[in-house]
Simulated scan of single mutants.
Amino acid sequence: MSNTVTMKDIAQKLNVSINAVSIALNDKEGVSTELRMQILEAATEMNYPFKKLNVKDTLKNKTLVVMIEDKKRDDLHYYLDLLKYIIDEAHIFGYRIFTEFYNFKNFVTPKCISEYHVAGIVVLGKISDEIIYALRLYNQKIICVNHSIPYFNVDTIITNNFLGGYVSCEYLIKKGYRNIGFVGEVESSKNFKERYQGYRQCMINHFHPKKHEFICLTKGIEKAVLNNDYRYIQKMLLTYRQMPQAFVCVNDRNAAIVIKALQYNGYKIPEDIKIIGYDNMEFSKSHYPALSTLEVNRQTIAKKVIRRIHEMIHENTIPETIMLSPQVIERESTL
């Protein structure tokens, strides 16, 4: 009796159809990237006699890995929304996307990278220098989105957060407001700090305020946002004798909880105080009142990501940083 591994053996091992195994092993469309990877890995482990397909070459030439920190898995408002556009754009260029959620503290290089040496790696959001170093041992074609790596020569696509903070503030100034506050825990994120610096510079350029004249809610804000603790912010707001005419917020979640706290204190939004957020999160349009916000179009980011990594794969490129400018989306909270 022959000991040769068959498609039926692989199908039984994974509890999938023989047709699904055939599609994956013959490099055809019709199964998800995750299932394709499972089938290819099982086939390799079982010593399936590949004839038409060299599994490693297929993964290397046609598969991109998108890495997202596992704590962002539930953040449907931004990174997973961006991921959908990246998958769509990758399909146009003939790439498959395999998504890896990784643990920041206990990082292990994904098997699809360490064993199969995929075509390229896209990192969404913050990542440590140590993890980048580990990834570069297997693949030099890495592009980071929304996070810069100063110690490595790595391609990056980032938002001009300083400009975003500046534009938010200037947008309110052009509406006739002078007393403008800021909300966001600036030390918790490089992006937040840059947005604050943009806001502050705009205020200085227009009004030359003294340091004590800035009304900034920064301490403990992230914890309050995560716990939906609007009462914490409500109490902070009560310490000010005069409320600002408007607030610039580091993101839409901060904006939403500030609105709730202000409403609890008896203020009407936007009649009494204007609020502008950042990121154009999924809920911002349906929020009451609908949130004015800033955004770099996610589809634009996805196009830049895939086109750039395609160039990196097929040409001799020099790492570069692409900086995108955000645009104001005006809604009810500032009208």
Rank of each mutant, 00 (worst) to 15 (best):
I157C: 03
I158G: 01
T159E: 15
N160Y: 08
L163W: 08
G164T: 02
G164N: 03
Y166E: 08
V167S: 03
E170H: 14
K174A: 05
G176Y: 15
Y177M: 15
N179C: 11
G181N: 06
G181P: 08
F182V: 08
F182G: 03
F182E: 04
V183L: 15
E187Q: 08
E187P: 00
K190D: 13
N191P: 13
N191W: 05
E194C: 05
Y196V: 01
Y196Q: 00
Q197T: 02
G198K: 01
Y199M: 02
Y199F: 14
Y199G: 02
I204F: 11
H208V: 07
H208T: 05
P209Q: 09
K210Y: 07
K211Q: 10
K211G: 01
K211E: 15
K211P: 01
H212C: 09
C216N: 09
T218Y: 11
K219D: 14
E222P: 02
E222S: 12
K223A: 06
N227T: 05
N227Q: 10
N228I: 08
N228Y: 12
D229I: 08
D229V: 04
Y230T: 05
Y230V: 06
R231H: 13
I233P: 03
K235Q: 15
K235C: 11
K235T: 09
K235F: 13
R241D: 06
Q242F: 12
Q242Y: 14
M243I: 12
A246C: 09
A246N: 07
F247C: 02
D252P: 13
N254G: 07
V258D: 01
V258Y: 02
I259R: 06
I259W: 01
